[in-house]
Design a protein around this nucleic acid. Structure first.
Length: 984
RNA sequence: GCCCAGGUGGCGGAAUUGGUAGACGCAGCAGACUCAAAAUCUGCCGUUCGCAAGGAUGUGCUGGUUCGAUUCCAGUCCUGGGCACCA
């Protein structure tokens, strides 16, 4: 029997399916392991070879843990709500449910062929009502919860209501603020709407006004990545910020816990850094500046309260609430002008033009809290309303932006840094002893910050304050293909639906264009929206991250109709032990699902507050694109030798000489030509040309040589003329043949392309479909090759060249069992050498698999098979163990050979071989011996030899003596089991 | 600008805590088998000097620590990823 991988793989895939070998149930007596891949979105493009990288890794790990005796949960499902399906529906009129269904089918078929061990009986889809019922249910839980600041956890909103009824909401100290605080009596007299309004300020999902990207021409709201340079990606229409009522997820309440708990999870440091960065915790102070020209005060947030004596002015965000109140009569005109200027500026522009300094004086002054100095109050777009208090104290000598601002508007600068400030640029250093700073003189930042805060607290003008950069997450989308909100609106107040009324089904729509006033398509179904004269449904839907924030829990108990996930299941399966996916979800999905988990934990619905114990990030597999150089067509030579314009595809004139390189003499001057392209072979010195780079398709290039016929296939535009320039000649596309530079016909030359690594994408024509690889080499080869490519977390290009080697390895393995179609394996007793090879491999594979070092594991397999081949080992005892080690990596061939040697059942139920150190012990070692650190020779020595014996033998060695050149021995370094160094 | 990761043959990449740099594979070269091809097998394969034995040199660059540095330290350059008027 030959290694017929296609036949073998199909057979075992069938076997695993019919015997349900991957189906798992709770087994209390067995340790569990939960291995999860990041939820894929079933895009229409299907899988390319980059996608399965993580899936293969998780599959190997799952099978490994199973062989090690764990009850392994390894499910797969689909994040099937989302924008692309809706976009496709908009274009083709096909219902997203239909296309999604089709895409999932393709996806599953592709996954099946690679032989993954998913328990498909647990498959879930976020767009399935039996799933989103529970997404809506959790939404209601979030809605009906608030974050208790005292206990730092989520609690039922009812607790808050009880508290308000008893004690109201009064400040711990100081005077109550109008509109914020209220007494119990006031609360009890509030109307239901007023109460709702107060509660909405505490709910974990809440409704509020927010800004969206509004595109008037398309009549719709756009996602950030649909907006390019202030214009819509489709159609290039202007996009403006528009205020609209939105739902928000109060993730900021969890900022501190999300930050703290990072210490308890096993994520890569860079991943943690990204999350820390996003949360953006900073410690500083809130400082109050009393108005000198107006009643009231301005609050600022600063991380550098130590520089308080360097404050020369204040800057408010133009949107700051106080701006209109404090502006003086004579500055009102200027301020209004500036405000209308800011309104014309998109957020993008405000962020892009860093160098242009703008601002306006309000005419108002505040008083310095310590020295009473009058400080002017400015407004400027460089201060953002959404961060801190929307106001800053400007310290020009220490902050570059403040410095530039002061300079531009001629505001005098106070120097509190002495000689460390040169008057030319700000010095933000924090190791500088302060001067000119009253009671802070002589201190550096570290001591001055607490002193400054203490002093501010004493005069009641400031306090220590922790700030977070993170914002609440927008939770509504003006779209169709998502979860409907279980919320009713009555006279502008939101009322949640009852849990028993769930699921609120997504109604069918006939078309997917937006509703009126920027609402989602659901707004068009008036009979669904309008329940009665006063009651309307919410018309937006939930974002993609709603369904994916808790799916790992549903996998534990996917068919449960009573609850989102039974306690029995969530207690047993608990955290995801290993979560594998790309870094693109570093901040979004991971933070949201961490937050949801914490809320569910706080409400006592699950017993753990972090979803993922360990996170493994797979690198991207880049596609290799073959490109060619093209002479920039807009080039005009001094002698007008050619003039081109790529936009209207016209070349007006052409003369022979291009900068002296291989001279091209083209067509007769009187030949009528209206389109020229000059392509350059990569082996030309292209540095002297002004070139652009164009892409070719993979199917027209092999080994970086362009197939000219294929390249011109389908380009039947006769008026289009392409000249392919090589070193020794050129190809003329109209004459369809090669010429040398004397214009004499010649044999075909090689036109070289060059490779560029870029994202694998259908658009780039560099997509490699795993199906093709599987047909040609088999799933086992494909799996092992993807792992062999390099460390899992590293990005690397896909290059099919190396796959042969892995395939050869499997064939070589096969020959240990079968040769010329006959079994050659035996039941003889293994020799010591054979056992040594085996146990060395057991040790290495186990270690590498456990720490996700799959590339080195594949190498170790190769080494093992090479050695066994060398030893002519065909012994079942050795080979069976090897098969078990290999089963996670190449499950089909392992299963096949496992049965060939007479075993029954699936190899997945075998016991993992146990490493025995006695087989790999050596009694001597060939030591590298260096003289003065330079390796000179190797000497074999017994491992039991004493240092004295070793020294004696080594110093007698003729090579060593030669290199010692009779110099006296200074030091003798002997590291047992490692090396020897003779120092003279 | 800030934060993180990484620079090793023609290529993908290996190298425990500082201890033989280049495992394994690809590509290449030479050979065996074959009418031939495929498949398979054997040998060579960083650079350089040398017929060889053997030497010199070599992990982005410049220094340092050490008997010994791809590994540790300082500086520097480059590449990739993330964040960015964030006070």
């Amino acid at each position: 029997m030959e290694y017929n991988f296609n036949e073998i793989e199909a057979r075992w895939q069938q076997f695993w399916e019919t015997h349900n070998v991957y189906q798992v149930e709770i087994q209390q007596d067995k340790p569990k392991c939960y291995v999860l891949d990041m939820f894929p979105y079933p895009s229409g493009a299907g899988l390319h070879v980059g996608h399965p990288l993580g899936y293969i890794a998780s599959d190997i790990y799952s099978r490994y843990k199973r062989l090690k005796g764990f009850n392994v949960l390894h499910p797969m499902g689909f994040d099937s709500f989302g924008l692309p399906a809706e976009q496709y529906a908009l274009e083709t009129g096909q219902h997203p449910a239909t296309t999604t269904e089709k895409n999932i089918k393709t996806f599953k078929e592709q996954l099946r062929k690679i032989g993954f061990c998913y328990d498909w009986s647990r498959e879930i889809r976020t767009s399935d009502p039996s799933y989103y019922q529970w997404t809506q249910w959790i939404f209601l839980k979030l809605y009906n919860s608030y974050f208790c600041n005292t206990q730092q956890k989520a609690r039922p909103i009812q607790d808050l209501i009880s508290k308000y009824e008893l004690r109201g909401a009064m400040p711990a100290q100081g005077d109550p603020v109008e509109g914020v605080h209220f007494t119990a009596e006031e609360w009890n007299n509030f109307s239901p709407e007023q109460k709702e309004e107060k509660l909405m300020r505490r709910r974990l999902v809440y409704s509020a006004e927010g800004e969206v990207n509004w595109c008037e021409a398309l009549g719709t709201v756009l996602a950030n990545d649909e907006v390019v340079n202030g214009l819509s990606e489709r159609g290039g229409h202007p996009v403006v910020k528009k205020k609209m009522r939105q739902w928000y997820l109060r993730i900021t309440a969890y900022a501190e816990r999300l930050l703290q708990c990072l210490d308890t999870v096993d994520f890569s440091e860079s991943m943690k850094d990204m999350q820390r960065n996003w949360i953006g915790k900073s410690e500083g102070a809130e400082v109050e500046f009393s108005g000198a020209t107006f009643e009231g005060k301005i609050k600022v947030y600063t991380t550098r309260p130590d520089t308080i004596f360097g404050v020369d002015f204040m800057v408010l965000a133009p949107e700051h609430a106080l701006v209109t109140d404090i502006t003086t009569a004579d500055q009102r005109g200027a301020v209004n002008d500036y405000l209308s200027y800011v309104k014309t500026r998109s957020e993008r522009e405000r962020m892009a033009e860093v160098k242009q300094i703008t601002g306006c004086f309000t005419g108002a002054y505040v008083l310095h809290p310590f020295n009473g100095k009058k400080l002017p109050v400015w407004i400027s777009e460089y201060v953002l309303a959404g961060y801190g208090t929307g106001a800053i104290m400007a310290v020009p000598c220490g902050d570059q932006r403040d410095f530039s601002f002061a300079r531009y508007f001629n505001i005098p600068i106070t120097n509190i840094l002495g000689s460390h400030f040169n008057g030319e640029e700000a010095n933000p250093g924090d190791q500088i002893e302060l001067v000119n700073s009253d009671f802070l003189n002589g201190y550096t930042k570290k001591e001055a910050v607490p002193l400054a805060i203490e002093a501010l607290e004493k005069i009641n003008q400031g306090k220590r304050k922790v700030n977070y950069k993170m914002r609440d997450a927008g939770f509504s989308r003006q779209r169709y293909w998502g979860e409907p909100f279980p919320v009713l609106w009555k006279n502008g107040t939101a009322y949640p639906m009852n849990e028993s009324e769930l699921p609120l089904l997504l109604p069918h729509v006939d078309h997917y264009s937006p509703g009126p006033e920027g609402q989602g398509p659901l707004a068009n179904i008036t009979e669904w929206v309008n329940i009665d004269a006063h009651t309307k449904r919410e018309t937006s839907t939930m974002p993609g991250f709603a369904g994916s924030s808790w799916y790992f829990l549903r996998f534990m108990d996917p068919q449960n109709k009573e609850t989102f996930c039974s306690t029995e299941a969530s207690d047993y399966w608990n955290q995801v032990d290993v979560y594998i996916g790309g870094t693109e979800h570093a901040v979004g999905h991971l933070l949201y699902s961490r937050m949801w988990t914490k809320v569910l934990f706080d409400l006592g619905l699950i017993q753990h507050d972090e979803p993922y114990k360990k996170l493994v990030n797979q690198g991207m597999i880049g596609g290799v694109s073959e490109k060619i150089y093209r002479i920039g067509l807009n080039q005009v030579e001094e002698d007008n030798s050619y003039v081109g314009n790529s936009s209207n595809n016209m070349i007006i004139k052409w003369k022979s000489d291009i900068n002296g390189l291989p001279i091209v003499l083209f067509p007769d001057e009187n030949e009528e030509i209206n389109y020229y392209l000059f392509n350059l072979s990569a082996d030309l010195d292209i540095s002297q040309y002004e070139t652009s780079v164009i892409r070719t398709s993979l199917n027209m290039v092999s080994e970086s040589i362009l197939n000219i016929e294929k390249y011109f296939e389908g380009k039947n535009n006769k008026s289009r003329y392409e000249i392919m320039l090589c070193k020794d000649g050129y190809y003329d596309s109209r004459r369809e043949r090669w010429f040398d530079y004397e214009k004499k016909p010649i044999e075909p030359l090689k036109f070289m392309t060059f490779q560029v690594q870029e994202k694998m994408s259908k658009r780039y024509g560099n997509v490699v479909n795993p199906d093709d690889v599987v047909i040609k080499y088999g799933a086992d080869t494909f799996r092992m090759y993807e792992m062999f490519l390099g460390p899992i977390e590293q990005s690397k290009p896909w290059d099919t060249k190396g796959i042969e080697g892995v395939h050869r390895f499997l064939k070589k393995l096969w020959r240990l069992f079968m040769e010329n179609g006959k079994s050659v394996w035996t039941t003889e007793t293994p020799t010591r050498d054979e056992l040594k090879t085996l146990h060395k491999t057991i040790h290495k594979i186990e270690q590498d698999t456990a720490q996700f070092s799959f590339n080195t594991a594949v190498s170790a397999f190769m080494v093992c098979v090479n050695e066994l081949t060398e030893l002519k080992c065909h012994k079942k005892e050795i080979l069976d163990s090897l098969l078990i080690l290999l089963a996670p990596y190449a499950p089909h061939i392992a299963e096949e050979l496992w049965h060939q040697t007479g075993n029954t059942g699936t190899i997945l139920d075998a016991a993992y071989p146990v490493f025995d150190a006695q087989y790999v012990q050596e009694d001597s070692k060939v030591y590298p011996v260096s003289v003065n650190g330079k390796l000179r020779t190797n000497i074999e020595l017994s491992l039991t030899a004493s240092p004295e014996e070793v020294q004696e033998v080594v110093l007698k060695d003729s090579v060593i003596q030669k290199w010692m050149e009779e110099k006296p021995l200074k030091k003798f370094i002997f590291i047992p089991g490692k090396m020897i160094n003779v120092v003279v």
